[in-house]
Design a protein around this nucleic acid. Structure first.
Length: 208
DNA sequence: ATCCCGAGGG
DNA sequence: CCCTCTGGAT
């Protein structure tokens, strides 16, 4: 696909920008990243990971004990509960390890397809699906890769049909980079951007 | 459809 | 002030 080549050329260093050193840390960082910037997540996780080195450490703590470490990220009550329950499930049902299938990951609190796809793709190199976050959803619709009225699930299905499976993880990172650097939610800064000029000069200004 | 929610940019 | 940020549960 021509768009894929152009994205590769423009964003050769596109990658996961959440900081982590183990699969369970990536899982936690991804849960925390909901409606938050990766910068804000990366600012909080060093102290969090130091205080709770293993899944068992979260399972043995209460959500209230986790909250102070993630308060600056926002949505912290829901996220503290999700992290606690997800890590407890790892200990009780998965031998303390992050499971490697979509079906198993979806049983964890705070984990839906977007988070599961991030973990499978980046920690295990498994392209089970396509990461559709706010950037990927927006860009897919602006670039005409999916109908503008499509749900997140539909967008994922369209992307999986359009792009080779082996490229899914990398392609999601490139779309996210493009969404953060050029084709932004607010109006966009598409002037002079190669991708926007060639594939989608439709970064229309936000209504009103 | 609503709620959760702090930080950062405009 | 307003909007957005690698969503998910109810």
């Amino acid at each position: 696909m021509e768009l894929l080549e152009a994205l590769r050329e423009q964003y050769p260093d596109a990658r996961c920008e959440l900081d982590y050193s183990t699969p369970h840390e990536l899982l936690i960082a991804t849960i925390l990243s909901a409606q938050a910037t990766d910068v804000s997540v990366n600012k909080a996780t060093p102290a969090l990971f130091k205080r709770f080195p293993t899944p068992a450490d979260y399972a043995g703590a209460t959500p209230a004990e986790i909250e102070p470490y993630i308060k600056t990220i926002g949505l912290y009550r829901n996220k503290a509960r999700a992290v606690h329950e997800a890590m407890r499930a790892l200990c009780e049902r998965f031998g303390g390890q992050v499971p490697r299938t979509m079906e198993e990951l979806l049983t964890l609190r705070g984990v839906a397809r977007k988070t599961a796809n991030v973990v499978l793709g980046n920690a295990f190199g498994i392209n089970a699906g396509f990461v559709v976050d706010t950037h990927v959803e927006r860009l897919s619709k602006r670039l005409g890769l999916a109908p503008k009225n499509a749900t997140v699930a539909k967008v994922e299905q369209h992307l999986m049909k359009l792009l080779p499976q082996a490229t899914w993880c990398d392609a999601s990172h490139m779309l996210i980079f493009h969404g953060r650097r050029a084709c932004k939610a607010r109006g966009g800064e598409c002037g002079g951007n190669v991708i926007c000029e060639r594939f989608g000069g439709r970064c229309e200004k936000r209504k009103r």
